[in-house]
């Protein structure tokens, strides 16, 4: 296949006759955008990196999962559940008081009550 650039001079002249003028405002706009996108330095730049964002997100998820796991374990081992703090305190108080107020069963050999008839 042989191709001659000037195989059709009229076509070539028409093609080369059309072009775009240079746009002076273009450079101003590009310079302004370049200034606006000036890179941020230091830790802020690191934080904005996609890898850093992904790592932060992974840490967040890990922490949330750990918190949920710990919460479940605690509620499972907690035993009694009380709706309010008041109920919990009353129950705890009752647990403390009960052994002291309980009356031991009288021994068979013990003396009977004076009011009873033998």
């Amino acid at each position: 296949m042989t191709i001659d650039h000037d195989d059709d001079p009229r076509l070539t002249r028409l093609l080369t006759a059309v072009r775009a003028d240079a746009e002076p405002a273009l450079w101003t706009r590009v310079r302004a955008r370049a200034e606006a996108r000036r890179p941020v330095g230091g830790p802020l730049a690191w934080i904005m990196r996609p890898a850093a964002l992904a790592a932060s997100f992974a840490i967040l998820l890990g922490t949330a999962a750990l918190a949920l796991t710990l919460g479940d374990t605690r509620s499972a081992s907690g035993g009694d559940e009380y709706a309010t703090l008041g109920e919990a305190l009353v129950a705890e108080r009752a647990a403390d008081v009960t052994p002291a107020t309980s009356v031991p069963a009288p021994a068979r050999s013990a003396a009977g009550d004076s009011g009873t008839r033998e």
């Binding site: 002249r13 028409l14 006759a17 059309v18 072009r19 775009a20 003028d21």
Partner: peptide, 9 residues
């Protein structure tokens, strides 16, 4: 429409 310019041939 393209913002092109045609030079006289």
């Amino acid at each position: 429409e393209s913002g092109l310019r045609a030079d006289p041939i």
